[in-house]
Amino acid sequence: MMRLNPILSQKIIKTLLWILTGSTIGILFFIIIYIFIKGLPQLSWTFLSTNPVDMGRSGGILATIVSTVYLIGIALFFATPLGLGTAIYLTEYTREGLITKIIRFGTESLAGIPSIILGLFGFAIFVIAFGWGWSLLSGGLTLSAMLLPTIIRTSEESILSVPQEYREVAFSLGVGKWKTITRVVLPAALPGIVTGIVLSIARSVGETAVIIFTAGSSLRFPSSIFESGRTLAVHFYILAREGISMPMAYGTAAILVLLILIINISAYMTMRFLMKRYS
């Protein structure tokens, strides 16, 4: 290869790299289009608004949508204050040092813990030790541990991107530190923080391993957070793996992918809008 004319070899390599990149992106589009072609025709208002009947062979997916919303709601209820608090502490109350190193290490490690380990943990602590059984509460709490690192990281970034002058002006007017943070810094950082939370919702929607162990897979319409529930992704997994109903599985998959697409694209749009505003 060394003997090849460098300009020619660059052309060959460049073409090859573009082909590889193109095929990667091709895989993504193929996945989305395949699921949509098979799944979108299954969708109807009845599919969305009725409960599953006969293990999901017929009926719709309403109960699974409600369980998904409950779980994400519970997870965000716990993860948002903890994550935002951590981000405020890291950006406004401390300098880089041993303590921030420890906190950052904890956050990064937690982000790397696979869903199945979190599932085991949630099962041991909430389902067994606390005696809550398989329930939306156990599942939501475990899920919040998974979302925490994402929320910390994105909140920290958006708080850091608020110009230092904002704080200086507030301080010079005699405003206290906490008031400066809640009235000046956080409102300016809010869109970025919300984007982070929205992205963590996208991640929860597709999650399965952690949820099967902690929230169970009951198909009943959940009437309280102490009951077991089956999320969309878990429902899809069970439909597909046990071969209960392929049309229903494709329909559920289409809803899942559609939700994730909408969430990611809107978060991305917000991010671009913000980057333009601050640059």
Partner: peptide
């Protein structure tokens, strides 16, 4: 008030590492 808020935030900031420790303890204990 500022002091109390700072204490609370410091506590919150240890949530991630706290959860990580809790996971370690529970997985190893079991």
């Amino acid at each position: 008030k500022e002091k109390i808020i700072e204490k609370i935030l410091t506590l919150l900031a240890f949530s991630a590492i706290g959860v990580l420790l809790l996971i370690t303890v529970f997985i190893f204990k079991e």
